[in-house]
Computed example of a mutant assay.
Amino acid sequence: MTTALYHLALPQAVFANPAASILLPIALGTAVGYSTRPQVNDLDVRSLKQPPLRPPPYVFGPVWTVLYGLMGYAAYRAVGVPGPTELSRDTRIISASIYTAQLGLNLIWMPLFFSLRRPIEATIDSVALLGLNVYLASLWLEQPATEVAGWCMVPYVAWLSFATYLSAGTGYLNGWSLRRDKGKGPAKDQ
């Protein structure tokens, strides 16, 4: 099983290089964020009902940049740094594969929510993303060799919990549709 998972992970060279490990999620997250963020004049997005505690839009970019950096550093510490107490080969492969999968899920949330206007699928993505990261953080926290990596994931898990609440709350408050019906408020998808 671990052989199959090995092929689903980012190359080991990414994890072994701290700069690559940190900058890759930042660069990918920034590219997806800028290419799929809603426009200021997007009436569909501006008219959405928001759940309580939603931060202003300008908060998301800096928060995600820090979280992507922490996530990349955690992956470097857990998968890329060899040492006398390093992870077993199987655990390293599982960690790299789960990390890669969660990065993919993270990167598709914005296109699902803002470009495709699919709040149900975006919320399912967010729940799956949260679950993978809770597992990954707990896996890394339980081993002394990767405890620092596990603690680096804790703010990410906390923010993902909040982001899942925002995704589900926005979907629910808008009848699970993010499209306006000719100025009459949110309408069902066609």
Results as ranks from 00 to 15, higher is better:
Leu70Lys: 04
Tyr156Ile: 03
Val40Cys: 02
Arg37Gln: 13
Pro38Arg: 07
Glu86Arg: 08
Glu147Ile: 04
Ser95Tyr: 00
Arg118Thr: 08
Asp44Leu: 03
Val40Lys: 14
Tyr68Gln: 13
Ala145Trp: 01
Asn106Pro: 04
Ile108Ala: 10
Leu48Asn: 00
Gln102Asn: 06
Tyr76Gly: 02
Leu129His: 14
Ser95Trp: 02
Met153Thr: 02
Tyr58Lys: 05
Asn106Asp: 10
Gln50Arg: 10
Lys49Val: 09
Glu142Gly: 10
Met110Trp: 05
Val127Lys: 12
Arg118Gly: 05
Leu130Asp: 13
Asn41His: 13
Met110Ile: 03
Ala128Met: 13
Tyr135Trp: 11
Asn106Gly: 08
Gly69Ser: 10
Met71Cys: 08
Ile93Met: 01
Thr123Ala: 14
Gly150Lys: 01
Met153Phe: 11
Val154Ala: 15
Leu116Pro: 03
Ala145Asn: 07
Ile120Asn: 09
Gly69Cys: 05
Trp64Asp: 08
Val45Cys: 03
Tyr68Val: 07
Arg54His: 08
Pro56Arg: 09
Leu112Tyr: 09
Arg118Met: 15
Val154Met: 15
Ala145Leu: 08
Ser88Ala: 11
Ser47Gln: 08
Pro55His: 02
Ser97Met: 10
Tyr156Cys: 01
Pro57His: 06
Gly150Ile: 00
Val63Cys: 11
Leu136Phe: 09
Cys152Gln: 01
Leu112Gln: 13
Glu142Leu: 13
Ile120Val: 14
Leu160Val: 10
Tyr58Gln: 12
Pro55Tyr: 07
Glu121Trp: 12
Pro57Ile: 05
Leu48His: 04
Leu132Tyr: 09
Trp151Ile: 12
Ile94Arg: 03
Val134Gly: 14
Leu107Ser: 04
Leu129Glu: 12
Val157Ile: 14
Arg37His: 14
Arg92Phe: 01
Ser161Gly: 15
Gly69Pro: 05
Gln143Val: 15
Ser115Gln: 10
Ser161Asp: 05
Cys152Trp: 06
Gly61Met: 06
Asp44Phe: 03
Tyr156Glu: 04
Leu43Trp: 07
Pro144Leu: 02
